[in-house]
Design a protein around this nucleic acid. Structure first.
Lengths: 220, 220
DNA sequence: ATATGTAAGTTGCAATTGCAACAAATAATA
DNA sequence: TATTATTTGTTGCAATTGCAACTTACATAT
């Protein structure tokens, strides 16, 4: 396989701990297919099935979603060595979004069956690949679950307090430093930034929390 | 292994396609451990790490979460042959919830390393187990992603329209039948039931949708 | 048919929220 | 340092929402 492509694959999260040489020789069992797409082409449509996991070799790709009023929203921007369609491919479910080529791009497609079936020569790198995929899927699961815990709450103040409490458990302290900006936190909690600011002030006034910049303290 | 336990394991989602005999003999490579817990004991605490995937052999278990004001909420009720802690175990992340024994119970613990490392005798059922786990994780991922798409929206009407649009894509029609009751739909969209009813009426009045009972039609 | 129970729709009201526009604080740059 | 850009906080306002209480519709049992 092309050296430049190997460089990209090497950086992929599902190739962690697998050497360039191994990636190259794994091609014998994986038989990945390299496909090119032209700028603005739609690679996968919402509702499609997809039997491959994709790794971007070159170019940029957007995960998009068209809402009920027809506006196209970019949910995620992907760059070389990022993967996509992994959950869709491995679960056999339909795509819940579109995948579009923002620029001309090249992707490396790994077929589901080739991934999850052990190769005849039972190569260790293939085992490692599967372990990496399990890591990626389970990690995503935890992140989604954590976010879900917040998003199902009905008020901004509940979201804030729950977020801070969860952070305090992780950081094992009542004093919490967060790495998100206000806008990022608002996006994460899925509320308006100014409404977030307002609720933070209120919670401080009512004595629930105290904060300066990105350092928070839970009081009650 | 105990026959009754094998009956339960056989029904587990991660044992699909693996026979009772195979499950029994897989014990040679999996070396699962059977542990008992007394009613009301806490099996795992939020913030803990956990290096095993668990299958319930007997008894009932609750996934709970204590909110900032100290109220314990039951997020999920689990019964024999259900699994838990799979994402936490396989990702190495901390638990985002508690696990409690609602009744006296018995659980079967499978260590992460034993699961993801191929056994020396490279048994086929072990491969199938890993495939099942990948299915479970990726399926959960898709479900969580779909729900997230809805929960990040800011208004109930947006949630409704987006939900219906997604369903119409899945059901390939503008006429949609849904299997959820109003209360279940409200819970799924994470809004108040009466507020949901109100918005449904409004959307119908404004000519966006039309519905009778659980049959919906998208108009614009 | 009548009674009982459950699910769904309606509505008033207070509280919360998003939005917009602006002010203040902070960071980045010339 | 002065200037500019970015981030954060504040506030008025209209719209949305949750909540509670009640009505209506539908189903099941007596």
């Amino acid at each position: 396989m092309d050296n430049i492509y190997l460089n990209v694959l090497e950086k992929s999260i599902i190739m962690q701990g697998i050497s360039r040489n191994e990636i190259d020789s794994m091609q014998n069992c994986l038989r990945g297919i390299i496909t090119e797409y032209k700028k603005n082409n739609i690679i996968l449509y919402e509702g499609d099935y997809c039997n491959y996991l994709a790794i971007i070799l070159s170019g940029n790709i957007n995960i998009t979603k068209t809402d009920f009023s027809g506006n196209k929203n970019i949910i995620l921007k992907l760059t070389p060595s990022n993967i996509f369609a992994e959950s869709v491919c491995l679960s056999g479910e339909k795509l819940p979004f579109n995948v579009e080529a923002e620029t001309d791009c090249t992707i490396y497609k790994l077929e589901k069956n080739k991934i999850i079936s052990p190769c005849s020569n039972s190569c260790l790198s293939h085992v490692k690949l599967i372990q990496n995929i399990i890591s990626v899927l389970s990690y995503k699961n935890i992140m989604l679950t954590k976010k879900m815990n917040l998003l199902t709450l009905r008020s901004t103040s509940e979201k804030i307090l729950t977020f801070l409490k969860a952070e305090s458990i992780v950081q094992k302290s009542n004093k919490i430093k967060i790495s998100l900006s206000r806008q990022q936190l608002a996006d994460y909690l899925s509320v308006d930034r100014s409404a977030l600011s307002r609720e933070l002030s209120r919670l401080q006034d009512s004595g629930y929390i105290k904060y300066t910049k990105n350092e928070f303290k839970i009081l009650k």
